[in-house]
Amino acid sequence: MLIQPVADMLARNADHYLIPADLVANVQADNNLYHAFLVLTKIKYSKIPVLDRAGHFEGLISLPLITEQMLGFDQLNVDILMHKRVSDVMETDVKTVPDIDHLEATLHLMIDHPFVPVVTADHVFQGIVTRREFMKSFNFLTHEIGKQYDMIEKDFSTSEKAK
């Protein structure tokens, strides 16, 4: 559990965490892999959200998932990208958060992932929270918390000796 001063300071910047859905590159589940490959290559991201036509979150697609499909025994098969759909290979077991107020859950997920999808209970994709945006707030926190809260340094050496 986050201590209250940390939670308060992180919550101050919460409106900056979310990159809204309309600004996030994505593909649709029924797009072919060739289209997804072009989008990922053009935007220079390795992974993006997959949505249905109504804007519901379906999963994530990545360059490794696509290139795995192209690998043959002795050559790359690019033609297969025209015939397979994103839904055939996308990652569907994706952890999401319902909103940006779930700071601690989001922090835990960002340990292993560069971004966390924000998805409502009825699967509507709201956007993403990126590790980069969180790190900017964490940087602010580390520089400002002592100015805004009285910080008392504890001497842990005496408690360690008591054990």
Score class of each variant (00 low, 15 high):
residue 80 I to W: 08
residue 80 I to A: 09
residue 80 I to G: 04
residue 82 M to A: 14
residue 83 H to Q: 15
residue 83 H to S: 13
residue 83 H to R: 13
residue 84 K to Y: 06
residue 84 K to T: 00
residue 85 R to T: 04
residue 87 S to I: 01
residue 87 S to N: 07
residue 89 V to M: 01
residue 89 V to Q: 01
residue 89 V to S: 02
residue 89 V to N: 00
residue 91 E to A: 01
residue 93 D to K: 02
residue 94 V to N: 00
residue 95 K to R: 11
residue 95 K to I: 06
residue 96 T to Q: 00
residue 96 T to P: 03
residue 100 I to T: 09
residue 100 I to C: 04
residue 100 I to Y: 02
residue 103 L to M: 07
residue 103 L to R: 03
residue 104 E to C: 04
residue 104 E to I: 04
residue 104 E to D: 10
residue 105 A to L: 11
residue 105 A to F: 03
residue 106 T to M: 10
residue 106 T to G: 03
residue 106 T to Y: 00
residue 107 L to Q: 02
residue 108 H to T: 12
residue 109 L to E: 04
residue 109 L to H: 07
residue 109 L to R: 00
residue 110 M to P: 01
residue 111 I to R: 13
residue 112 D to H: 09
residue 113 H to Q: 09
residue 113 H to L: 04
residue 115 F to H: 09
residue 115 F to M: 09
residue 115 F to I: 06
residue 115 F to L: 05
residue 117 P to S: 02
residue 117 P to R: 03
residue 118 V to N: 06
residue 119 V to T: 06
residue 120 T to P: 04
residue 121 A to P: 08
residue 121 A to T: 09
residue 121 A to C: 06
residue 122 D to A: 10
residue 122 D to T: 14
residue 122 D to K: 11
residue 123 H to Q: 12
residue 123 H to R: 11
residue 123 H to K: 13
residue 124 V to F: 14
residue 125 F to G: 02
residue 127 G to E: 04
residue 127 G to M: 01
residue 128 I to H: 01
residue 129 V to E: 02
residue 131 R to Y: 08
residue 132 R to V: 11
residue 132 R to D: 15
residue 133 E to Q: 13
residue 133 E to C: 07
residue 134 F to I: 15
residue 134 F to G: 05
residue 136 K to H: 13
residue 136 K to M: 13
residue 136 K to L: 15
residue 137 S to E: 12
residue 137 S to P: 05
residue 137 S to H: 05
residue 137 S to G: 12
residue 137 S to D: 11
residue 138 F to N: 11
residue 138 F to H: 11
residue 139 N to V: 11
residue 140 F to D: 15
residue 140 F to I: 15
residue 140 F to K: 15
residue 141 L to T: 06
residue 141 L to N: 07
residue 142 T to L: 15
residue 142 T to M: 15
residue 142 T to D: 10
residue 143 H to T: 08
residue 144 E to W: 06
residue 144 E to M: 12
residue 145 I to A: 02
residue 145 I to D: 02
residue 146 G to R: 03
residue 146 G to D: 08
residue 146 G to F: 05
residue 147 K to E: 12
residue 147 K to Q: 13
residue 147 K to W: 07
residue 150 D to I: 14
residue 151 M to N: 04
residue 153 E to G: 04
residue 153 E to M: 09
residue 153 E to D: 12
residue 154 K to F: 14
residue 154 K to C: 12
residue 155 D to E: 03
residue 155 D to L: 00
residue 155 D to P: 05
residue 156 F to Q: 05
residue 158 T to K: 14
residue 158 T to G: 06
residue 158 T to E: 13
residue 159 S to P: 00
residue 159 S to V: 12
residue 160 E to K: 14
residue 161 K to G: 04
residue 161 K to T: 10
residue 162 A to T: 08
residue 162 A to N: 08
residue 162 A to S: 10
residue 162 A to I: 10
residue 163 K to I: 12
